[in-house]
């Protein structure tokens, strides 16, 4: 489904080179919920953005659904992105649009067929349980409701892949649980492959089947979730597994 091969990303800042990603190779299969965990600054944000080329790798290959995204023209890339939904930590809903209009946005980019848009959006409103908030503006929604609108919006073009960029990091534990439940349901019922990045091991445990640990721009461990919890190899993984905040 998704294959990253020897992906490198180097940022140039004031003549200094900063290596953000180093020789990353990942294989994600259809139907996976693939978690990428790491602490702040580890490169996970950059990594998830290479999958839809919001960040262009300096070298390497990004293959999604059999297509090497780096070989596409910019017009072809725009189409390829419609197959890859994305949600964000801060939701990124358009403040000038209602819930309905936000979900309609990605469909409007390709069709003017109002009846089709209406039908599709109404299905999605049911899926994310926001039928009664249809005409509200995002400013009047709670964090969890905003993220559900964002999920519906990301699914509006029937993508095969959903990228989640710290999707629950701005939410309280109870809301987090309900969003994770929704993501799991989407994965099962719509057979959508999910890639998520997080700094919380609990999110990985609750949702994912496979996991990669990233530190300083490198993948240091890659396995199934059970394997990682039972038999963590690196010190960094052990650190991430221990969420206790005690200062000794």
């Amino acid at each position: 489904m998704i294959r990253l091969e020897k992906v490198n990303k180097v940022f140039v800042k004031k003549d200094k080179e900063v290596v953000a990603l180093k020789d990353i190779s990942i294989q994600i299969d259809k139907g996976d919920i693939y978690g990428i965990i790491g602490s702040s600054g580890a490169g996970k944000s950059t990594l998830i953005r290479t999958i839809n080329l919001l960040e262009r790798p300096t070298s390497g290959q990004v293959i999604v659904s059999g297509t090497n995204l780096l070989s596409l023209s910019s017009a072809q890339l725009l189409d390829a992105r419609k197959n890859i939904g994305m949600i964000f930590q801060h939701f990124n809903l358009l403040s000038s649009r209602t819930v309905f209009e936000n979900i309609a946005f990605p469909i409007e980019l390709t069709t003017k067929n109002k009846a089709f848009i209406k039908k599709k959006v109404e299905e999605l409103l049911v899926l994310v349980d926001l039928v009664d908030k249809r005409d509200e503006y995002p400013a009047n929604l709670s964090g969890g409701q905003k993220q559900r609108v964002a999920i519906a919006r990301a699914l509006a073009t029937d993508p095969e892949v959903l990228l989640c960029d710290e999707a629950t990091s701005a939410l309280d534990p109870m809301t987090t649980r309900s969003i994770l439940g929704l993501l799991k349901r989407i994965n099962r019922e719509l057979a959508i492959t999910i890639v998520l990045i997080t700094h919380e091991m609990q999110v990985i445990r609750a949702l994912c089947n496979k996991v990669a640990v990233i530190a300083n721009g490198e993948i240091i461990e890659q396995s199934s979730v059970e394997e990682l919890f039972q038999n963590p190899k690196s010190a960094i993984t052990k650190e991430l597994l221990n969420p206790s905040l005690s200062l000794d």
Partner: peptide, 13 residues
């Protein structure tokens, strides 16, 4: 906010 533009780009705008 740049996030809005980024979200729009992710949707192939």
């Amino acid at each position: 906010p740049y996030g809005l533009i980024e979200a729009a780009r992710s949707m192939g705008t």
